[in-house]
Design a protein around this nucleic acid. Structure first.
Length: 465
DNA sequence: TCTGGGGTCCTAGGACCC
DNA sequence: TCTGGGGTCCTAGGACCC
């Protein structure tokens, strides 16, 4: 933990609602509620005028309307929010090169990372007041709350204390005085479920938490949470401010106004979603390997099904086909209230790069073939540049394979995912045209030593035991 | 008229490998 | 003939955050 208050946390006050009030003078001084406007919407942000009436983030819109019928209800203008956010983040980067945005309206700044400066609490306070005034000018009126402390944990807690439009600097050495009496839910990461588990064993405040043994908390909450909570309860937090964090997943989901039972309609929705995901991947110059379908039944029961491709793709067609295959394997029950499509296992390259192929367009047949779902154990390196690729359609599935330059040929078939995967030898009768699908379970294709001039795929040989 | 959308991280079990 | 000890990958679900 640092000895100076040099981690800054900034939080723009009622951000979405404030942008709306800034851009529409008629809304100033009035309750403004931004969120899902439809039947099943929830509140994203409520202006302070609306909070007076008990309207909160994540509240159902129906309840918000009941509590505050005279409010302005808006669905949000994300381009405007992104623009305002970029101005703020830009100003923060003048403060230090090390800025970690957490969302459009929140960021950590490492004040110790830039040029050497006076990090005494008084000097930092002056600096923050200048920063907040600049942000107000730059954004034409948006206000921010700021906390500065010796760690991320305390900075984030501190920014809540003088909210809205205030600053709180935690003098080094006083962290536990501030944190100890707070409820455990003040610690980010402790939500309702964890708080309830802790309450049942008599832990309500951070001081209560600190009195417990690590072993007990690990048993109660698991290894990661237990250990981390022990440290945080002591204000022991050395997590660094990290500027560039790479995305780990991309997803799109939608809740229907009314539950949908029509499979054809769901297929169309899933296809559109997959294309949107692919579009976002490509704009981010990313590709992904694991396709996930998310569904939510009428009773809110939620499930995910996923399939992992042989290599990363950003092809809308491939993503759509895989998402639709997952849907096809899904029981629609009494209807779905939500579907979603996501991709994870992101890479900043596409599988194209591995092949000596002139297929620049990811939707070309050859390329698609190579991106088809395969067994999880197959890796991109199973394939050699210029490999001779074969494909045979077997009606209820398909077979594909690639020659590595001579006799060694791997053939694999896959039924509609997530069905079983089978591997065949080149002379397997199942490969005869007209044969309708695999006839025997997957068997390892042992390459004979010295029989493979193109190199053996990693992992396909035993360790000699 | 119960309960958004976009994320992250963690856990746990099974398959598979060495 | 009873049964190891790691490790990684994959799938699914849950808690949490803004």
């Amino acid at each position: 933990m640092r000895t100076t208050a040099s981690v800054l946390h900034l939080d723009l006050d009622a951000f979405f609602a404030s942008v709306e009030q800034r851009d529409k003078p008629s809304l100033r001084g009035r309750p403004v509620i931004v969120g899902g406007i439809g039947q099943r919407g929830v509140v994203s942000t409520a202006s302070y005028e609306a909070r007076v009436h008990g309207v909160r983030s994540a509240m159902r819109m129906a309840e918000a309307r009941a509590r505050c019928p005279h409010a302005a209800f808006l669905s949000g203008r994300f381009d405007a929010y992104r623009e305002a956010s970029a101005l703020v983040m830009g100003r923060l980067r003048q403060e230090s090169p090390l800025v970690e945005p957490l969302s459009l309206d929140e960021a950590f700044v490492d004040l110790a990372a830039g040029e050497e400066s006076d990090l005494s609490p008084d000097a930092v306070l002056d600096r923050v007041e200048t920063l907040r005034a600049d942000i107000r000018d730059l954004t034409e009126g948006l206000t921010a709350s700021v906390g500065v402390a010796s760690s991320k944990l305390m900075a984030k807690i501190a920014s809540e204390i003088r909210k809205p439009d205030g600053t709180f600097v935690v003098a080094p050495g006083t962290e536990l005085d501030l944190l100890g009496p707070m409820q455990v839910t003040a610690i980010p990461g402790v939500g309702p479920a964890t708080a309830e588990r802790l309450r049942r064993v008599g832990v309500v405040t951070v001081d209560d938490l600190r009195a417990r043994e690590e072993d007990e908390l690990v048993r109660l909450l698991g290894s990661a949470s237990g250990r981390s909570l022990v440290r945080l309860s002591r204000a022991d937090d050395d997590r660094p401010v990290v500027a560039e964090r790479e995305a780990k997943s991309v997803s799109v989901e939608d809740t229907f106004a009314d539950d949908v039972t029509d499979r054809a309609r769901l297929e169309a929705v899933v296809e559109r979603m997959a294309r949107r995901v692919a579009d976002r991947l490509r704009r981010g110059q990313l590709s992904g390997r694991t396709v996930t379908l998310k569904i939510r039944y009428h009773d809110f029961e939620t499930h995910t099904r996923s399939t992992t491709l042989a290599g990363p793709t950003d092809s809308p067609t491939i993503l759509a086909r895989n998402a639709q295959a997952l849907l096809a394997a899904t029981d629609l029950g009494g209807g779905l209230r939500l579907v979603g499509v996501g991709v994870s296992g992101l890479a900043d390259w596409v599988q194209d790069d591995l092949f000596d192929s002139d297929a620049d367009d990811h939707d070309e047949p050859l390329d698609e073939l190579l991106d088809e779902p395969g067994p999880a154990t197959r890796t991109a390196s199973d394939w050699s540049p210029g490999a001779d690729v074969h494909h045979r359609d077997h009606g209820d599935g398909w077979v594909w394979g690639a020659g590595l330059g001579r006799v060694t040929v791997r053939f694999e078939t896959r039924l509609t995912p997530p069905g079983p995967v089978h591997t065949f030898a080149a002379d397997d009768p199942a490969l005869e045209p007209g044969h309708a699908g695999p006839t025997r379970p997957r068997t390892p294709l042992a390459a004979e030593p010295g029989d493979d001039p193109a190199g053996t795929p990693p992992g396909s040989l035993g360790d000699g035991r």
